[in-house]
Design a protein around this nucleic acid. Structure first.
Lengths: 148, 148
DNA sequence: AATCAAACTTGATTCATTCAAGACACGCCG
DNA sequence: CGGCGTGTCTTGAATGAATCAAGTTTGATT
């Protein structure tokens, strides 16, 4: 079922259905933010053989078909996610790199409109919120010698 | 004059004043968006010797002193800029990588407030507008066979 | 079933960045 | 004003993510 509509989506995008592609999409649906490396590991854990190069090929193909999205917060390798076309943004922990999705409700319209366009044809506004996740806030507090 | 207040800023930040640091700051004021590599080249063009490692050390020191800022649009190496503490954002050309500053007037307040915080302590909202610069729009149009 | 381009594999290579260890020099102190 | 110590720089090697290149396999079309 899930498997079936992945196949369909691939075919609709003009892509051949292969074991590797099915597995990659499956992995990304189960693990919403994964590096190429993590995808490779998890695909192999499903019993599907895949080369490093194929991981990159598959991810690139899926990305340009619009089935997945690639983000790359500063200092981090590329991260892939299956949630797509819903204009959500990301919150990234400066300390541990944790990434959390944020649906852009408040700022949506405003954020999508740069105040000066300089002749650019803008097609996307990407918002990244930087900060500390709850766990790293606690660690940072205790490193400063604060109780608890 | 410009040179002088760079020295002062360095000292105020608790950093020693060296030829390399002065040159890096000067280069970044003249070239507002430069990679580590480009900084190295331009510093050397000023007649100041600097090793690759020192470029990274200096840039890191200046960054943590708050004198410069590092950004890293997806797919690009790190880019350094001297404009700092003025909450501006960036517009990046998908085709040629050109980066243009955008002062965030319209969306400012909204952009700084994620709609859900998930317990994160957010300290910065980074907005990147993706699109095509004027020159690349023309190239893309003619690649599609459109006249002119 | 035969075909053939698309997709995969293997292996080497690039680029940006970081690690490590030692040499140098800025700026303080006597 | 000259010596000292640590912060900064140099050299050289290493890492990690991603890409390039060439050859083999395989999905889907006839």
């Amino acid at each position: 079922m899930a498997e079936l509509d992945i196949s369909d989506q691939l075919r609709e995008a003009g892509l051949r259905v292969t074991r590797q592609r099915l597995a990659v999409v499956r992995v990304l649906r189960e693990h919403p933010h994964a590096t190429a490396d993590a995808v490779a590991e998890r695909v192999r854990a499903l019993g599907v053989t895949i080369s490093t190069q194929a991981v990159y090929d598959v991810l690139a193909a899926l990305e340009s078909a619009g089935l997945i999205r690639r983000i790359e917060p500063a200092g981090s390798p590329g991260i892939f996610e299956a949630r797509v076309h819903d204009n959500h943004h990301h919150m990234v922990c400066r300390r541990c790199g944790l990434i959390v999705d944020v649906s852009c409700v408040v700022g949506e319209a405003a954020c999508l409109t740069p105040s000066e366009s300089h002749g650019f044809a803008v097609d996307e506004a990407e918002v990244t919120f930087w900060g500390l996740c709850p766990a790293c806030q606690r660690i940072a507090a205790s490193e400063r010698g604060e109780p608890r």
